[in-house]
C-alpha cells in the first residue's frame, strides 16, 4: 500500500520475438542494400523477406533496447531472456509488431506472427505456424488458434512447458520452448537433427 492505493501483484514481463524466420528459413525476395533500419526497410517493396509479418532482422529493436538484451543472428532478433527487463521499448521500435511482452514465466511460445493463410505461409517460410490445431487439440486451455495462427494462452492457469512441446510435435516447428528458439536462431545442428 502506498498513497492508499493497492499496487496489486504485478507480473514480470519479458519480450518475445514471435518469429523464427531467419535467413535459412524464409524466402528472400530482394537483395536489400539500404538503410540498416527495420522501419526504413519495410518501406521498400514491403521489406526484403518473403513474409510480410516476420522479423526483418535489421536491428531497430537492438538499438532501442536499454539492457542490451537483443542480438541479431542470421537476420533474426534473439532476446536474451536473462537480460530482458521487460520495458517494452523494443515493442514500440518494431515496425512489424513481431515483438510482444508476455509473462516472464512462460517457457513455450508460438514463434510465428503471420495471419496469412497456411498454404501461403508454407511457401514463404519453413517454420511458420500453419494453423493445424494440433496444439489446441492437445491442450485446449493452453492454446488458442485464430484462423491459421496459433498462440499460447498466457492467461491460462497452467502455462505449457517443454513436455507439452515434446508431446505435441508441431509439424513445422513454430511451437518451441525459448531455449529451442535460441538453437534455431543460431542454426545449431542439435535443433536440425531434432527436426529430422
Amino acid at each position: 500500500m502506498a498513497l492508499g492505493i493497492d499496487a496489486g501483484a504485478g507480473k514480470r514481463k519479458r519480450a518475445v520475438v514471435r518469429c523464427s524466420g531467419d535467413t535459412l528459413q524464409v524466402v528472400r525476395h530482394l537483395n536489400y542494400n539500404g538503410v540498416t533500419d527495420c522501419a526504413a526497410a519495410s518501406l521498400v517493396a514491403g521489406g526484403p523477406k518473403g513474409c510480410r509479418y516476420g522479423c526483418l532482422g535489421l536491428g531497430s529493436c537492438v538499438n532501442a533496447c536499454p539492457a542490451g538484451a537483443i542480438e541479431i543472428v542470421n537476420n533474426l532478433a534473439l532476446v536474451h531472456r536473462e537480460l530482458c527487463i521487460g520495458c517494452g521499448k523494443c515493442v514500440a521500435a518494431c515496425p512489424r509488431g513481431v515483438i510482444a511482452l508476455v509473462d516472464a514465466d512462460a517457457e513455450v511460445h508460438v514463434y510465428c506472427n503471420s495471419p496469412a493463410k497456411g498454404a501461403e505461409k508454407r511457401k514463404q517460410c519453413k517454420v511458420a505456424c500453419i494453423g493445424c490445431r494440433k496444439c489446441a487439440k492437445y491442450a485446449e486451455d493452453k492454446f488458442t488458434v485464430n484462423g491459421s495462427l496459433a498462440s499460447v494462452n498466457y492467461d491460462a492457469e497452467v502455462l505449457p512447458d517443454a513436455e507439452d512441446v515434446e508431446n505435441i510435435k508441431c509439424p513445422t516447428g513454430a511451437l518451441l520452448t525459448a531455449s529451442q528458439h535460441h538453437l534455431i536462431e543460431k542454426n545449431d545442428p542439435a535443433w536440425k537433427k531434432d527436426k529430422k
Binding site: 538503410v35 522501419a39 526504413a40 518501406l43 521498400v44
Partner: peptide
C-alpha cells in the same frame, strides 16, 4: 548514402 530512403522514412513518420 541512402538519402532518399531516409527521407522517405521521415516523411512516413
Amino acid at each position: 548514402r541512402p538519402l532518399v530512403q531516409l527521407l522517405r522514412r521521415a516523411k512516413a513518420e
